[in-house]
Design a protein around this nucleic acid. Structure first.
Length: 130
DNA sequence: CGTGTGACTGACC
DNA sequence: AGGTCAGCCACAC
């Protein structure tokens, strides 16, 4: 069922217009306080492997009043993906610092602050089990 | 329809 | 440590 039933924009929620990005937003919303996730990680979690750029687009479309922790999404190098010095960059960094996410220079240590999913956690346990 | 442009990534040099 | 490149895919021209 692709477009057999066109969406009525007028009836759609005014806040989150795009249903195609719902899986991404749901994944972002699942990042816990004080943790971060990479674009690629969110894409995979949303069932969209290798589509990190799509996550970027989804976040760009996000209304400013959306109740979604967009700032917990960073790139695979542990950096904020806005130009350093931009307002957006500072806003994101401030929000992360408020959650006690630490920056070493312009980078976050993913080995310490990256969110690990429950599924990944159990796999880790499985691999480490004697 | 071709091209360029991203809130991206991993591989390679 | 930094640059390039090919995937990636929606979108604007």
């Amino acid at each position: 069922m692709r477009s057999s039933k066109p969406i009525k924009r007028s009836d759609a929620p005014a806040t989150l217009g795009h249903e195609r990005f719902e899986a991404i937003w749901t994944a972002v919303a699942a990042i816990p306080f004080g943790k971060v996730a990479t674009y690629g990680q969110i894409a995979e979690h949303a069932g969209l492997p290798r589509r990190a750029r799509l996550v970027g687009q989804a976040l760009r479309q996000l209304p400013s009043d959306a109740d979604i922790p967009w700032y917990r999404v960073i790139n695979a190098r542990g950096e904020i993906s806005f130009p350093s010095g931009s307002d957006a960059y500072r806003r994101q960094m401030t929000l992360l610092l408020a959650e006690k996410v630490e920056f070493k220079g312009s980078r976050i240590d993913l080995s310490r602050f990256q969110w690990t999913d429950a599924a990944i956690g159990s796999l880790d346990e499985l691999l480490w089990k004697p």
